[in-house]
């Protein structure tokens, strides 16, 4: 006897309840809160004033809001670009190397590349903070004759954002590598054989066969990187602090949001939660649009195939 009707709905119910209660509701409620302000002690409806304030010349932390917000957007874009260029391109390179069947010790390399992903971010942050601190690394680097590398990489406005981005890439490179490896292993060997018989070079095998066939994975990785980077907060918090020092050079949308909406500026802790909700809402909408665009593009590619 085959069960009929909506019996399967029972299975959905628990997850649905959790999802609605702990994800959908808070998300929508924060959209609602972005039209309120609690700066006077109670929540008051203020219309779109949080949004207009964010893009105005009204002062925050001693400079116009738009300057801080614009700076955070710019830094986040740079952070994202570095991840795409370093984390994902290197991930692809590692994946191609790791799927080379003639290479020995593949699993060892795979484990090594994946290992940092398992570290807690605070551990990563602390570790790199010490490694990149000239106070502690100078002796070692000078011993190697690399004394000039002993710079306060995380303390100079010119280098801090790149340093933090690379630390983040170092930690997460295992994820795209693994996904690309899985994607590449799915490609049938027949294709490579056929290509070799036709006399295709390694280079054109990569560009004409491997890359097009893992394009859906590229799409997924891009979305993951995009969403994670525009929500990034933890790695900056762990290596630099919530102020995005030095001189706001590492202030991402995530740290800006946390400072405005949750933490408040040290030592006042005067969080403006309505404004925080407004920043979160804008980021949320931006992420949805961005993800849909990427997802749509990779989906059609899949169908064409």
């Amino acid at each position: 006897m085959h069960p009929s009707g909506l019996y399967w709905a029972w299975y959905l119910l628990p997850a649905l309840v959790v999802y609605l209660l702990f994800m959908a509701f808070p998300l929508l409620d924060s959209v609602r809160l972005s039209f309120f302000s609690d700066n006077t002690g109670s929540w008051e409806f203020v219309g779109i004033s949080n949004y207009s304030k964010l893009f105005s010349n009204e002062f925050f932390e001693g400079v116009p809001y738009i300057q801080r917000y614009g700076n955070a957007i710019k830094n986040t874009c740079v952070f994202f670009c570095i991840h795409m260029l370093v984390q994902n391109v290197l991930g692809m390179l590692f994946a191609v190397i790791l799927t080379n069947k003639r290479m020995r010790g593949r699993t060892v390399y795979q484990a090594v590349i994946f290992l940092p992903t398992t570290f807690a971010i605070l551990v990563t942050g602390y570790l790199w903070k010490l490694l990149l601190n000239p106070i502690w690394s100078r002796g070692f680097l000078e011993g190697l004759g690399l004394g000039s590398l002993s710079q306060p990489w995380l303390g100079q406005p010119e280098t801090a954002l790149t340093a933090v981005s690379l630390i983040s890439c170092w930690q997460w490179i295992g994820i795209p590598t693994m996904m690309f490896v899985a994607g590449l292993l799915n490609i049938s060997d027949d294709l490579y054989e056929a290509a070799e018989i036709e006399g295709a070079s390694k280079w054109s095998i990569f560009w004409r066969i491997k890359l097009p066939l893992v394009k859906p994975v590229v799409g997924m990785i891009s979305i993951l990187t995009f969403v994670n980077n525009f929500n990034a907060f933890d790695i900056v918090y762990a290596t630099e602090g919530a102020n995005g020092p030095p001189a706001y050079a590492t202030d991402l949308l995530g740290t800006f949001f946390a400072r405005v909406g949750i933490l408040g500026q040290h030592p006042r802790g005067n969080a403006d939660r309505g404004m925080g909700a407004a920043i979160a809402t804008i980021t949320f909408i931006f992420l949805i649009i961005g993800s849909l665009i990427v997802l749509n593009n990779t989906r059609t590619k899949e169908k064409e195939k």
Binding site: K129, L132, N133, P134, I135, R138, S150, Q151, P152, W153, L154, G155, Q156, P246
Partner: peptide, 8 residues
């Protein structure tokens, strides 16, 4: 300290 920008 030299590199004081990174000194916590």
């Amino acid at each position: 300290p030299s590199g004081f920008q990174s000194v916590t």
